[in-house]
């Protein structure tokens, strides 16, 4: 691919990103006139206090969260597809979302009988976030422990899936014995939500995501070599274990943080990297990672706009929207390429 075309695509992606970011700010149950919106952007005061609050305290954090989550999940999906050389790998193959889910389930369902629902919501969602984080960190820790001992990457993949299943099984047990209100709180968490973050929480989320993305970009050289498989990577002097662990840590920070704050958001991480490979026509992570960051953010902002159903005051769970958008992409890729194994 010539570099001129690549640059053009990047300009287009950035343009789309800005456009969708603004569109996301504009959509929501409350209608904010376009004129007022631009007045605010240009710093004029001719905006009602309510609309200002809606924009600054609700829609702006939500749009930034969508941007961060889209970028983070897509990059971690790309990393997992590369390192496992498997086109169906995603940010959650290591069991990170199940770990987070288990953490949340333990707090919401397990201790739900100790606290009342009201008390939990009073503690703010920080408890929930910390629980999710701890859960995914625990899974990461187990995976890292395994990857120090186990050489075969496929064994790690299978163990990741098994840990995830084990966590899901425990969640099921907790669900079975929990009260209705707690169950609902957990189910809502598991549907994903981009709009629950406060500005203060963003101050925590943003550095985490930037750190994860930076780690990923530092690993460009190693990720490219992982494409050829570990035997070749080793024969060219790469330290497989360290590189693998760094990629796992980066993936866990990215996917773990997003899952902790927003709940599990599916299919973005699997579908976006494929779309990016297709439009940029390259396997080089130096181009793929920035492309994936932009496209992931665009897709999740788009999903968020769809989920608010412009003109109505109903909001769909964002997880359903990403699934309904992502699954056709994956199906299309499978049908188009016939052989799934050639997708990565």
């Amino acid at each position: 691919m010539n570099s001129k075309k690549t640059i053009l695509i990047f300009i287009l992606l950035i343009f789309l990103l800005v456009l969708l970011f603004l569109a996301d700010l504009l959509t929501g149950p409350v209608h904010i006139p376009l004129k007022e919106f631009f007045h605010m952007l240009s710093g004029k005061d001719a905006v009602s206090d309510i609309n200002r609050t809606i924009l600054v305290a609700f829609r702006l954090p939500k749009a930034i969260t969508a941007l961060m989550a889209g970028a983070a999940l897509s990059v971690s999906g790309l990393q997992m597809q590369t390192i496992f050389r498997n086109p169906l790998a995603g940010p959650y193959v290591l069991g990170i979302s199940s770990g987070a889910g288990l953490g949340v389930a333990l707090v919401v369902l397990g201790f739900g009988s100790v606290f009342s629902g009201h008390e939990i919501s009073y503690l703010g969602n920080w408890v929930q976030i910390m629980a999710a984080w701890t859960g995914s960190a625990l899974v990461l820790f187990i995976i890292l422990l395994v990857s120090v001992k186990v050489k075969d990457i496929m064994t790690i993949l299978i163990l990741g899936i098994l840990f995830g299943s084990a966590a899901s099984a425990i969640i099921s047990i907790l669900q079975y014995f929990s009260q209705q209100t707690m169950l609902k709180a957990f189910v809502i968490w598991s549907m994903g939500n981009l709009g629950s973050l406060s500005v203060r929480q963003l101050y925590v989320l943003i550095p985490c995501i930037l750190a994860g993305l930076l780690m990923s970009m530092i690993q460009v050289k190693q990720l490219n070599l992982f494409l050829l498989g570990e035997t070749y990577a080793k024969s060219m002097g790469m330290n497989i274990r360290i590189s693998r662990i760094l990629v796992f840590i980066s993936t866990s920070i990215l996917a773990g943080s997003i899952t902790a704050f927003c709940g599990p958001i599916g299919f973005i991480g699997i579908a976006v990297p494929h779309v990016v490979r297709l439009i940029l026509n390259t396997a080089n992570h130096r181009i793929l990672i920035p492309g994936t960051i932009l496209t992931g953010a665009i897709v999740l902002l788009g999903s968020d706009i769809i989920s608010t159903i412009p003109g109505r005051d109903v909001i769909l769970p964002v997880n359903s929207v990403t699934a309904l958008m992502g699954i056709p992409v994956v199906i299309w890729l499978i049908v188009k390429n016939r052989r799934l194994s050639s997708l990565n």
Partner: peptide
């Protein structure tokens, strides 16, 4: 190695 990777877009 005996393994000849087939990587799309590379």
């Amino acid at each position: 190695s005996t393994e000849v990777p087939v990587i799309p877009n590379l």
